[in-house]
């Protein structure tokens, strides 16, 4: 082997392990799922024994009130948590963007909630929401109020609160990083021109942070569709279907109802939805890069 071919093969040798693993355990399963979603598929059968049913699974799902319900629960959950987390996280970042002692300790403590297992998060919150021994109701009662039926009547709200607790720090840290990398000159100029704190935030800080914030929100939105364990541990999708997000429904359809074909079709719907958001994020970053490049070129031409 001469050195020329060696150099040409190098990138392929570096890529090969990753490509092989992802092809076997990611792309092939996805293709398998698409294939399976057109079949009437029971867990005890291997896929070659199954019957081809066309779009039956998709159509049944489309008119299935339970699936629609869980789809709308998922959308409500995802958008509510993302909006709430963005507002709280960015607000806190604006508030805490100061030169204070112990900021790094603060950030360390803030990232604890998202590092621990979702299963454990669900467990902690299930305890705190417990109708009689839970922290919230005990506190409410000791103050003389009625206890609240957290995981019963207000299950979706309770689940949303737990997610906000876990993931607001993510937004906070990204927003803080974005704030601290803003050009100091712009802020300085605004201060000299006599802009108040609010004016600085609305006219300078927020518009400059916007690109990062939009990417953060989209990332978080995609992740919000993956939340499963917290809800599983806290409510198991109940009461009724009130907190049964699509991910949970997929797992129940596959394991409890033993309808793999339907579960595969459901996964496909979820995948298409997420694909849409991913493409939006992709398009947005491309647009941003193009704009930055154009601006840089303009500056160069003028200078």
């Amino acid at each position: 082997m001469n050195s020329q071919t060696f150099n040409k093969l190098t990138p392929y040798m570096f890529m090969a392990p990753a490509v092989i693993i992802m092809a076997i355990a990611l792309l092939y399963p996805l293709g398998y799922m698409v294939y399976g979603s057109f079949r009437d598929w029971d867990p005890s059968q291997s896929i070659s024994e199954t019957e081809f049913v066309g779009f039956k699974n998709y159509i049944t799902l489309f008119f299935d009130p339970a699936f629609r319900e869980s789809l709308s629960v998922t959308l409500i959950f995802a958008f509510t948590v993302v909006i709430a987390e963005m507002v709280i996280g960015v607000g806190l970042a604006l508030l805490l963007d100061r030169n204070i002692r112990g900021m790094s300790v603060l950030r360390t403590l803030f990232i604890l909630p998202m590092m621990i297992a979702p299963v454990v998060v669900g467990l902690m919150w299930r305890y705190m929401y417990h109708p009689t021994v839970g922290t919230f109701n005990r506190t409410l009662k000791s103050w003389g109020f009625e206890g609240v039926d957290w995981l019963g009547q207000h299950a979706l709200l309770s689940v949303i609160i737990a997610d906000i607790w876990q993931w607001t720090p993510f937004i906070f840290i990204l927003a803080l990083a974005a704030l601290q990398s803003l050009p100091r000159s712009a802020l300085e100029a605004a201060r000299i021109d006599g802009a108040t704190g609010w004016q600085q935030i609305i006219y300078i800080k927020l518009p400059l942070m916007m690109p990062v914030l939009i990417v953060t929100a989209l990332l978080r939105l995609i992740d919000a569709f993956k939340v499963l364990e917290v809800i599983l541990v806290m409510t198991e999708g109940g009461p009724g279907l009130s907190t049964e997000i699509v991910a949970l429904r997929i797992s129940r359809t596959a394991t409890e109802f033993r309808e793999l074909g339907t579960a595969a079709a459901m996964s496909n719907y979820l995948l298409i939805l997420l694909l849409f958001f991913t493409l939006a994020m992709f398009a947005f970053t491309r647009l941003q890069e193009a704009r930055a490049a154009r601006l840089a070129r303009q500056v160069q031409e003028e200078g």
Binding site: L26, L27, P29, Y32, M33, G36, V246, I250, A254, L270
Partner: peptide
């Protein structure tokens, strides 16, 4: 591009095919 796209695949979507395969 493929790497970027498959990043969004949630574990729940992989559940059915992975279980079968």
């Amino acid at each position: 591009l493929t790497t970027l796209m498959v990043r969004m695949v949630p574990p729940a979507v992989l559940l059915v095919p992975v279980f079968g395969l």
